[in-house]
Amino acid sequence: MTAATDLDRPASMPAFQEISPGRRFKNQLATVLVGLAFLAALAPLVWLLVTVLVKGLKYVFSLDWWQKSLAGLTPRQFGGGVYHAIIGTLIEGLVCAVIAVPIAIMVAVYLVEYGKGSRLARAVTFTVDILSGVPSIVAALFVYALWVTTFGLPRSAFAVALALVLLMIPVVVRTTEELLKIVPDELREAAYALGVPKWKTIVKIVIPTALSGIVTGISLAIARVMGETAPVLVLVGYNPFINNDPFEGNMASLPLLMTNERLTTTAAGEARVWGAAVTLILIITVFNLLGSLISRLTSLKTK
């Protein structure tokens, strides 16, 4: 804090010269432009959130919305709910997390604890970087090529989860790696000095120390993949019924419901689209808040 104010205001005003009008003008212009740039980022954020809330919030207040599916409703009929899509979104997100999180944490452990400076570690870091830039549609096509064309298995929510795994791994590896790096080496050395094997040190000392941050990262990553649309579009069909089986049959999810109902050009269709948009934003918000809550509950006591 103090450093900043010191930087902003020199101890004594420069006695030797005035700032010329040209320089002063440039300085003020830059200040204004920079402030405007920030406002330019806020404007779409506010506009977008207000739009979605205004158009969709009124539909999510009914209990039916959270408890029923759209089964048996005609395009013109209001009513029903998005329970089937919520459950689909959650299943896909959680199945993905169950597969991706252990792999990602092990990769991060490898990078921080074992592979430092080795050629494989450099390759892994590079791959994680590339993987984080792979478009979701390419991940979806890959799983399609693997799961549907090569193995001949039907499209299913599980295939979606597999595609999401590809998108989730780099996110979790990144956060976990950063957090493991800041675990103080003294903790590791203390454990080694007591004769604790390395793997036990990692499992019992290093990871628990970083756990609260890791959990936050995971829940942010889940929130991110649950909003992905491209994989559900390619890898699973939409249906308006409730389906709890990720391996069998079509399964709705909120993004998929939106892309489908978008083509229903009735007032009811519009209601479903924007209602689902609000629901998706709510779920993502809940997962974000959950992350910080869990991290607060599980964080190690600090003096």
Binding site: V52, T229, P255, T259, V273, L280
Partner: peptide, 10 residues
């Protein structure tokens, strides 16, 4: 954090 489908609709 906003899903891209919501950007699309907006």
């Amino acid at each position: 954090a906003v899903p891209s489908i919501i950007y699309g609709l907006w």
